[in-house]
């Protein structure tokens, strides 16, 4: 198994699934992330998915696919989703794709209180 340069930690409570991604999100790491996050989503069936990007230093368009895919899945299961704290370079690619018109982009502390 080749060393992975991405991963995530998660917390679940009262319908809110909090996922904190870290590392470099590209096509190489996306398949594993997708499988692992989707297992969690199916298991917990969250009303809300919070995707924290504060630990992501690099992301290309494969990350956009990853985000939109999770957004669709959570939506199909009747939940909603928000992106938390993207770093400067990540904001740039999110904006290029017009993600904020579809998914709310929020600050960690405020969103976790909701």
């Amino acid at each position: 198994m080749l060393r992975s340069n991405s991963g995530f930690e998660h917390e679940y409570s009262e319908g809110v699934l909090y996922v904190r991604l870290w590392g470099e999100i590209d096509h190489h790491g996306a398949a594993t992330l997708r499988g692992d996050i989707d297992s969690l989503i199916y298991e917990k069936r969250p009303q809300r998915l919070l995707l924290d990007l504060s630990g992501v230093g690099f992301m290309d368009s494969s990350g956009l696919g990853l985000i939109m895919g999770r957004y669709s899945l959570v939506g199909e299961l009747g939940g909603s989703m928000a992106i938390l704290d993207p770093t400067e370079p990540i904001v740039k690619i999110l904006n290029l794709a017009g993600i904020k018109r579809i998914i709310a982009i929020e600050k960690t502390k405020e969103a976790k209180k909701k």
Binding site: A30, R34, D60, S61, G65, M68, L96, A97
Partner: peptide
């Protein structure tokens, strides 16, 4: 899950 945004 390609986004079609690579060239963009």
């Amino acid at each position: 899950e390609r986004s079609g945004m690579g060239f963009t």
